[in-house]
Structure formats: C-alpha cells, structure tokens
C-alpha cells in the first residue's frame, strides 16, 4: 500500500473543518425521521460563530478550573486527532503504543470537564459529572478490549497500523470478529459522545442528562470551545469506527479518502437514525450494558485468536 502523506494531512484538516457538520447531520436526520424540516446543516457553525463573539459570564463560586477546563479539553482532543490514519494513510506522528496515549488523552479531556463542572458547586453539574465518571470508567475497559482485538488482528501496537492494515486473509473468522468489534467501538463512541441511548443531549430535563448537565455554567467563547471539542470528539470516534471497517488495501488513497469522508457522514446519519428510533436506557442498566460490551469485545478477540489457529 503506497503511502501518501498528502491525504493524511487532508484528512486532518477536513476533520478540523468539518467536525461541526456532524452534529448538523445528526440533527437533520432526526428531523427527517419525525417529518420536520429541522435546522440547517450548517447550524452548528452559526452557533459557534455566535458564541465566539459573545461575552462571558462566570460563576462566583468558581476558583479557577471552570476557566481552564475548556482549553484543556480542546487541546487534549486536538492532540488525539494526530494519531488516526485518515484515509488509511499512516499518521506521521505514530509510534508504538500511541493507542494508549489516544485513549488517555480522551480521559484527560473528560477529567478537565468533570473538574470544571464540579467547580461551580451546582447540584445538576455534580450529577452529570458523577454519571460521566461512572460510565467513562466502565467504557474504558471496553475500549481497551477493542484495542486488544485490533492489536492482535494487525500484529501491531500502533493505532495507524491497527486501523489501516488490510484484513488478514488467512484468518477465516476475521470478518465476524471485525463486525463484532466495530459494533462495540460504535457503542463506545455513543457512550463517549453522550448520544442516545446512553444520554439524551436534547432533553429538556437537566436531571436526565450527562454531558449537557456538566456544561450548564459555560457561556460565550468557553462554551464555543466545549461545543467544538464535542464535535471533534464525535468526528474522531466515528472516524475510528469507519476506519475499522475499511480495509487498507481496498482502493487507492484518493478513493479511500472519499470513502472515509462519506463513511463518517454516513456514521452521522446512522447515529441520527438510532436517536430517532430509540429511547434512552435506564441509567441503572447502563453499567451492565457496558460490561456486556466489554465481554463482547473480548469474544471478538477470542474469535480472531481461534481463527488464527496455530501458535499455542
């Protein structure tokens, strides 16, 4: 597979520019499902533009973290963006073990957000933060099981190679395993990005939200930072799922680039469809569900191992 760094950089810049489009796509899909016209696809851009021009109001209870949390989250996500192999081109920043850095950078962003939320002393934000740490801790296990599967299937510890390697043709069970693991990665993506059925970003009750409840006290550019980071995270995780499903030897780099872009947008449509047709789970059932996801990812790994056969 010939490497073309141009397409990687193009993929990165596309991610940075088009990330806010993804929430737009989701909302549009949802609106179509219920027969409304819905907001414009570009609405998230308008929102961001408006927020960056606005003034800022800050809680008097805060003692600092509220101010620096959005920046921290954004920088963690910007850095995490560097490790994905866009269009199946190896990232120039890749190194052995960058998958762990990727996972922990997402963790850093979350930590900042939780600390920022607790800084306000608001009971609603405390509630959201409490739920966030709970579900994130359990999702982490499932995510690492998926990474374990990817590492075994690609024989590499490097996120770029894991996601861009061609499917091993000699393993008979790998397609089943990849589909399973991508399913789990999709679930992880939904949890990490607080989408239905794990969290409802658009309910009118703060009591039932996770992510949105944590950012109640942000305003102006700070809120803009957070919305942009959320969009980036959504793009990042969707791209991860899409890249898992795209074998690296499928086509030439430009075609892969287009496929990857379309895949992410299609991912947005799928998320929107899931949101339109399903309701939020009970919070009490969520840990069990996440544990099930972890177990399923391990089974995907076992499928690959048994398919590989020899070695024991």
């Amino acid at each position: 597979m010939p490497q073309n760094p141009f397409f990687w950089w193009a993929g990165l810049i596309t991610a940075l520019l088009l990330a806010p489009l993804l929430p737009g796509v989701i909302n549009k899909t949802k609106a179509c499902f219920v027969g409304r016209q819905g907001p414009s696809l570009l609405q998230p851009y308008y929102n961001l533009h408006k927020l960056f021009r606005k003034d800022c109001i800050r809680s008097s209870t805060s003692c600092g973290p509220l101010a620096w949390a959005p920046g921290l989250e954004l920088s963690a996500l910007l850095l995490a963006l560097l490790f994905l192999p866009y269009a199946n081109q190896l990232s120039p920043f890749a190194f052995t073990g960058d998958a762990f850095l990727f996972a922990y950078l997402l963790g850093l962003g979350r930590f900042a957000l939780v600390i920022g939320a607790m800084d306000t002393g608001s009971s609603f934000e405390g509630m959201g933060a409490s739920r966030e740490v709970q579900f994130a801790a359990l999702t982490e296990g499932a995510f690492f099981a998926v990474i374990g599967f990817l590492a075994f299937a690609s024989r590499s510890l490097n996120l770029s190679e894991m996601l861009s390697c061609p499917l091993p043709a000699n393993v008979p069970t790998v397609i089943a395993a990849v589909i399973l693991a991508a399913g789990i990665a999709f679930i992880v993506m939904l949890v990490e990005n607080s989408r239905v059925p794990f969290d409802d970003p658009e309910t009118h009750l703060e009591l039932t939200m996770i992510h949105e409840a944590m950012i109640l006290d942000y305003s102006g550019p700070d809120l803009g930072f957070i919305l942009y980071s959320a969009a980036l995270k959504l793009w990042l995780m969707t791209a991860l799922v899409v890249l898992m499903l795209l074998p690296g030897d499928l086509a030439s780099a430009p075609v892969l680039f287009i496929l990857h872009l379309l895949g992410v947008l299609l991912g947005g449509i799928v998320i929107g469809a899931v949101e339109a047709v399903s309701a939020r789970f009970r919070f009490l059932k969520l840990p069990q569900f996440l544990l099930g996801a972890l177990c399923t990812a391990l089974i995907a790994l076992a499928l690959t191992v048994i398919g590989t056969g020899g070695g024991r």
Binding site: T173, I175, A176, G292
Partner: peptide, 13 residues
C-alpha cells in the same frame, strides 16, 4: 463464523 459469533454474543445477552 458470523452465525457462530452471533451465537456467542447471544449467550451474553
């Protein structure tokens, strides 16, 4: 293998 994988996940469910 898809069917067998699905059967394995079904046990978890």
């Amino acid at each position: 293998s898809l069917l067998l994988g699905a059967l394995l996940v079904l046990n978890l469910l």
